[in-house]
């Protein structure tokens, strides 16, 4: 046979594609999280609660969860895992790197401290914007096919933040009181998260298309060939 063996027509349907849409929603949980949590970067505090709600409303997509340990420091990790000093150090460094990449970013120190508390923010190493300092790190294994994964954890000391006193992940997920040394983690928590940043300018691509289409009038066909 020289043609595709079988095509699942349900996945190709667009108009009443319940199944497909659901799938997409599930797949995009992380992105929705990001979109919502990102709004807080533009310093509207009320949207923080939106982020939390969004996270919980999506919780139905995955029922896998595990108890994951949260450590406040490398020392804390070593105390709980004697003989694992090196693993604790590596996990900490990986979580720090992940924090650089995925933590919420703020234009000013004030905006960041407003959310996370006085003296709890620092400059991002390369872009110069502000981000909360990592308050701890979570280690999980079961949900990631037996591989260890590390997530940075943050916490807020700002009384008017909805995260006050709680562990919070880079994507805005609230894990409950920071006095707990373990939290309930879902498989999605350990998936690679997109990097969040500040955009300086847009519109740097597409000008040639605009110029060429003004020659041929409006076109709906496009720039493929």
């Amino acid at each position: 046979m020289k043609r595709s063996k079988s095509i699942n027509l349900e996945t190709m349907r667009k108009s009443d594609a319940l199944c497909d849409t659901n799938l997409d929603t599930c797949r995009n949980v992380e992105n929705h999280d990001k979109v919502e949590s990102h709004k807080k970067v533009s310093a509207t505090r009320s949207s923080l609660s939106v982020a939390v709600v969004a996270t919980f409303s999506m919780a139905g997509c995955s029922s896998d969860s595990e108890e994951a340990a949260v450590y406040r420091s490398v020392e804390d990790c070593k105390d709980s895992n004697p003989g694992q000093a090196e693993a604790c150090q590596i996990a900490y460094e990986n979580a720090e790197k992940e924090a650089e990449r995925t933590a919420p970013k703020y234009n000013s120190q004030r905006d960041c401290e407003d959310e996370f508390g006085y003296d709890r923010c620092r400059r991002h190493s390369s872009s110069g914007v502000f981000m909360p300092m990592m308050a701890g790190y979570m280690i999980g294994s079961m949900l990631n096919g037996g591989r260890y994964s590390y997530n940075p954890m943050f916490t807020s000391y700002s009384r008017h933040s909805p995260y006050y006193g709680n562990w919070v992940g880079a994507g805005g997920r609230d894990y409950g009181s920071r006095y707990n040394s373990s939290v309930r983690a879902r498989s999605g928590d350990f998936q690679k998260k997109p990097t969040v940043t500040k955009t300086m300018s847009r519109g740097g691509f597409g000008s040639r298309a605009a110029a060429a289409s003004s020659w041929s009038g409006s076109r709906s066909s496009g720039w493929g060939g």
């Binding site: 979109v35 990102h38 940043t197 300086m200 300018s201 847009r202």
Partner: peptide, 17 residues
């Protein structure tokens, strides 16, 4: 047309990802 750039030269989408 909605692709953006950061200060350090990375490309971003409309949600700053």
């Amino acid at each position: 047309e909605d692709i953006g750039r950061t200060q350090s030269g990375e490309f971003t989408d409309k949600d700053d990802v």
